[in-house]
Design a protein around this nucleic acid. Structure first.
Lengths: 143, 143
DNA sequence: AATCAATATTTGAGCTTGTCAACTATTTAA
DNA sequence: TTAAATAGTTGACAAGCTCAAATATTGATT
């Protein structure tokens, strides 16, 4: 068990290190659209035909609901996203992409695909292994 | 090549998703010490007998030097870290742990080891694979 | 039907993180 | 010795966050 925790800690530390080092190239993604990394991620999460309630976004981002309010405010000001009423529940605001938002999201994805990220340097096997591991980690996390 | 980029993008997206979801449990690490996630990471990076110049920290964190100034200010106020003059170059400030900082760092590591992080749930093989992959990614990055 | 607890979102205060431009001090190179 | 590069700081300012408090709705229980 001690062994397991040590290794898990080591992996975690490497992950952190990787992320911080990588961060420098992150802003480049949304820079030409004037989007911050978090905003890019939100746009990435928000699929054109699958709007989600703000509360779900908060859960996905693991942050306070009030944070999402500000986040969405800024995206809405830019005309990328809109709050819509929810069908059955008048408390809920459902988040959807505007046509502009949908277009920008597309450009963003193409742009990210275009510029090779550091993961490109892995061998196909390694990449597959990484994807499999991450999928497992994400699956088990919540119901 | 298109295939490669698509897969790399998928892996990247998963990584982002994982990180944001994980973030919720991150503050818990340093909470009892009153440390933010970034501060924890800096403490983690700063090994007791291997002080580093602020400029190197900025590089490691991929952020502006002025950001490091504030970061270190706050850590210094808490008495965890101190700026020391560098041997050969009077422009340079070398960052070292104070005795307190060293102790807190130790507690922090033990604390993190203690509470099982999500990576604990991987099989040993998967964990080894993950560590190997991350090490490769970090190695190749810079000289 | 009236009430009470839970849920979704917003507001406002306040902190940390982060960037940029401008400035000082030192070092290095021409 | 002047000029260009490097290390760090400062000040202004935006964004990302959290917390506590307030509003509006919904759901469950009497």
């Amino acid at each position: 068990m001690a062994r397991t925790n040590d290794e898990a800690r080591r992996a975690w530390q490497l992950l952190m290190r990787f992320f911080f080092r990588q961060r420098g190239q992150l802003p480049a993604c949304g820079d030409q659209f004037g989007l911050s990394p978090v905003q890019c991620h939100v746009l990435h999460l928000l699929e054109p035909d699958d709007p989600m309630p703000m509360s779900r976004l908060a859960k996905t981002l693991s942050c306070d609901a009030s944070n999402v309010t500000g986040l969405v405010d800024r995206l809405e000001t830019r005309g990328l996203v809109e709050r819509r009423p929810a069908a059955g529940d008048r408390r809920v605001r459902v988040l959807g992409l505007t046509p502009t938002g949908s277009r920008v999201r597309g450009e963003l994805l193409r742009h990210v695909s275009g510029r090779p990220n550091p993961l490109t340097r892995l061998t196909p096997d390694e990449r597959r292994a990484l994807v499999r591991i991450l999928e497992r980690l994400l699956d088990e996390q919540d119901g």
